[in-house]
């Protein structure tokens, strides 16, 4: 249960199974030669077999446990926060716009290393600089709210 390599191998096998199952709905062969399902079927089968070999390797030869590769404590929480912050950004940016969502995102990351007011000041400064640099100077489209920011 604690073997990270084995879990990854199982995830890859499941991925290969789903993709392979879907690939069977495609035409495998046509009168001109291989059809659109030819490569998907074979690549899924090969990935499944290799993942099975990886599972064997993970269990027998090269055991990598979660505790060996994943961080702990504050570092783990910081990484989880970064991922959640990106997810929150995706969810709120259509309503709040880039500036507000970006500040929330950066603040969540900065709070691990700075006092809230310093983190907020850094977040606001960086986002405003980026907004000006990309949207105004480089004309790069950014997700904005009804007010244009």
């Amino acid at each position: 249960m604690k073997n990270a390599g084995a879990w990854m191998a199982c995830a890859l096998m499941a991925f290969a199974l789903v993709m392979g199952w879907q690939a069977l709905t495609l035409r495998y062969y046509t009168k001109f030669g291989p059809g659109s399902g030819f490569m998907p079927v074979w690549s899924s089968v090969l990935l499944f077999l290799l993942s099975a070999a990886y599972l064997w390797e993970s269990l027998r030869r090269d055991v990598i446990r979660f505790r060996d590769i994943l961080p702990e404590g504050k570092t783990l929480w910081r990484n989880v926060t970064i991922l959640l912050a990106v997810l929150v950004f995706i969810l709120i940016v259509p309503y709040t716009g880039f500036v507000a969502a970006g500040i929330v995102l950066l603040l969540a990351v900065f709070l691990f290393d700075f006092k809230w007011y310093a983190g907020l000041a850094l977040s606001v400064t960086i986002i405003l600089i980026f907004f000006y640099l990309f949207r105004t100077l480089l004309k790069v489209p950014l997700p904005v709210n009804a007010l244009g920011w």
């Binding site: 995706i90 995102l105 950066l106 990351v109 900065f110 700075f114 986002i127 980026f130 990309f134």
Partner: peptide, 26 residues
Amino acid sequence: RYLYPVVLIICIIGAYTVSNSLWDVG
């Protein structure tokens, strides 16, 4: 702690710009 939050924002802008869609950020 100063550098990588900035890189994170560039990642998001870079992904969004591919097709101006939040799908790409996801």
